[in-house]
Design a protein around this nucleic acid. Structure first.
Lengths: 334, 334
DNA sequence: GTGAAAGCGCTAACAT
DNA sequence: ATGTTAGCGCTTTCAC
């Protein structure tokens, strides 16, 4: 594996010149740069990140902290971030959070991440105060995707607006008994988002003078199977709701499966709306509020990249657009 | 951020001793080791991966190459691998493949991966001959998860056995018109797995003297929405199959949604069986052949870790178990 | 069992 | 525009 010396020797220049030429720094004659570049290409030379990192203090790597990979939102964000990072020659390190297994507290102290990453992108996480303090003490650029976290820059949607879109749609159709399957207090999940959506569900109802009794909410943990169970309970009782607003499309799928099991027709007996526009939502014919997590991941990557290259930090919160997508799971109450 | 010198000074020993003590090397008195360990803990010292990597040639990092994050199999494998890697103090970094956008060819040459990773774990990928050659020329330990690839060690299930389990079940129930929704020639996908499963579907039928006409196979691209479309075509015609064997659970979900849209009752009008036992399969009440990709990811991690620590390479192919899980989507033909 | 010293392959001043 | 010289923070001989 060739080193910078091989390239330097081959061109009859110093290693410093090679370094400058390859990194696009000024003060290299076009001719020399050309020479160096082709020599590097021929030798298949790539600077060792370890050596470069050691001497420059830059690792060209960012850590992506995820509570759980197995969610559509997560994979989309990770893909978007990875792509944007790679485009700038950065690598993305994964840091799984092992929620509830007390791996969390040790994250920032024990992990190699500390010295390996130039920045961190964290997903939908409600950091504990300790973690937040540690994060700051690392003095690394950081951004959170998918949930407002005090003191850290954020990219995400306007959750209030998203819920209003969904609820406004159901209310306009004439629904009055609208239940909510949402998230709640999962370990490591960002409860902020769940709470915001739940609160706005209630507020939307109350603004119309409609009741939002506690038993019309059930936690679906942002997981489809759990949401299905929640919906089974919700729809099994008396005074059945005519519509369900799910806090995510995955949970909405669970509601749909529950409705099918109960023999309820959609949308005649039950309307369902979610948030996300998951890749499968069209197949479920699900009405939903679209967001673009891949774009959010890309935006987050660009934010930390900018910060690393000295661009003054933008607004502390970047809003990604949402829009209502009406499909077949919603209609007037039967 | 404290360095090895701080720890050495604090203990009145040399940096060499600190290094030895912390890494559990021999020739350190228990007393000294104890001293060093607590000093390191107090200072919150962690060796800089860049420096350690530079001098030792070991980065304590492995690359995970994925064609697409957005598949259940992928996320499970990645989580399993990440966990096993982290347990040994290794970091995992992601390399997305950007299928079809000609990012593939440049993977091994341009990427930092070359010098940053000690090993690579690749998922369900059918490497091109070029890539395979490059991979070897890196001389890094490598293992592929989820599809036999010539010349690279592999962990995965016995695909033939898995298909026989699924098909045996349908045949035992008395089905004779069994269609297949599978994978085919996607860019970057491992066609080997898709082909193996398709071939065995056909073989299972033919062993019983049953026909397996070409139009009873449709490509679902290992994606749910595409599988739904395939199933719609498959089930819409005359001489409708009484059962569908899907090459993955995600594709099976698509078949189930298609059946619902067509007003077919499951399992009375149509039986469906998949492969995976996806986290959502129980909610769909799907009969399937279970595999454990998270365990496979862990196994892959342990294979490369072993190889890195000089343990002689085991068998070139490690088989992960499969088992039939009978649920409600299969029954005798109506 | 422990220390001294020589790098690992780069980048960043500082010269020229 | 280019070269020289120090390190960056570790690991690793090789002495002791």
């Amino acid at each position: 594996m060739s080193s910078i010396h091989d390239v330097a020797r081959r061109c009859g220049v110093s290693t410093a010149t090679v370094s400058r030429a390859l990194r696009g720094l000024p003060n290299v004659s076009p001719r020399t740069r050309q020479l160096v570049q082709s020599a590097a290409a021929e030798l298949g030379y790539v600077a060792s990140p370890a050596a470069a990192g050691l001497s420059s203090g830059r690792n060209r790597a960012v850590a992506i902290v995820v509570p759980s990979m197995a969610r559509w939102f997560t994979t989309e964000v990770v893909e978007g971030a990875d792509r944007a990072l790679r485009a700038e020659g950065y690598d993305a390190f994964l840091v799984g959070l092992e929620v509830g297994q007390n791996g969390r507290e040790r994250l920032f102290t024990d992990s190699l991440l500390r010295k390996r990453a130039d920045a961190v992108i964290a997903l939908g996480i409600d950091f504990t105060p300790d973690e937040r303090r540690e994060l700051r003490s690392l003095a690394l650029p950081a951004v959170v995707v998918g949930g407002p976290v005090a003191g850290v820059r954020t990219v995400g949607i306007d959750d209030v607006a998203a819920v209003r879109l969904a609820m406004g749609h159901l209310l306009a159709l004439g629904h009055t008994r609208i239940a909510h399957v949402g998230g709640e207090d999962e370990w490591g999940m960002d409860l902020t988002v769940a709470l915001l959506r739940r609160r706005e569900w209630r507020a939307a109802l109350e603004r119309r003078g409609l009741p939002a009794p506690d038993d019309r909410f059930r936690s679906g943990g942002f997981l489809m199977p759990m949401a299905k169970r929640a919906a089974l309970a919700l729809l099994g009782g008396t005074e059945r709701p005519t519509a369900v607003f799910a806090g995510s499309d995955e949970m909405a799928f669970g509601v749909l499966l529950a409705a099918r099991d109960l023999g309820l027709r959609v949308p005649e007996d039950l309307s369902v709306v979610g948030i996300d526009d998951h890749a499968w939502s069209a197949s479920f014919d699900l009405t939903t509020v679209r967001q673009d997590p891949e774009a959010q991941g890309g935006a987050a990557a660009r934010m930390v990249l900018d910060e690393l290259s000295g661009v003054p930090a933008q607004a502390p919160m970047q809003r990604s657009p949402v829009s209502l997508v009406v499909r077949g799971t919603t209609g007037p109450p039967g």
